[in-house]
Design a protein around this nucleic acid. Structure first.
Length: 110
DNA sequence: CAGGTGACATGAG
DNA sequence: ACTCATGCCACCT
């Protein structure tokens, strides 16, 4: 069973971690999601920044790979992660990058 | 074990 | 400012 195909709803951190383990996620995947979860409303971070913060400074591309299959949307605010050059980046959830932009605007991140 | 893939980054043209 | 090529990394098949 692949972790990427199981949508899960979790509100507390302990439950979130438990769910991650249950899904058999790697340490890297868990680290990425937990880091993204820390981004405050109205704020944004870059893929590169996330990679650096979890101790894999060159794995920024892999960060995108993890978010692409984010099983915890919208509990993990992955829409707050944008590209280093300031462009919006992609968004796999319904509505695509367009919806991503709208979310950021509604949160006051722009 | 050997390719292939992609919500990226960066530099060159 | 825009496009293209190359480098990177973790994960999948």
């Amino acid at each position: 069973m692949r972790a990427s195909n199981i949508p899960v709803s979790v509100r507390s951190l302990p439950k979130l971690k438990a769910a991650m383990d249950k899904l058999g996620m790697t340490d890297f995947q868990k680290a990425v999601l937990l880091e993204v979860r820390r981004i405050h409303k109205g704020d944004t971070a870059t893929y590169k920044r996330i990679a650096e913060r979890i101790g894999h400074p060159k794995a920024y591309r892999a960060v995108g790979t993890v978010l692409r299959n984010n099983p915890f949307a919208p509990f993990i605010p992955c829409h707050r992660v944008i590209r280093s050059d300031g462009s919006i980046g992609n968004y796999s959830a319904r509505g695509g990058s367009k919806a991503k932009l709208k979310l950021l605007e509604s949160e006051g991140a722009l």
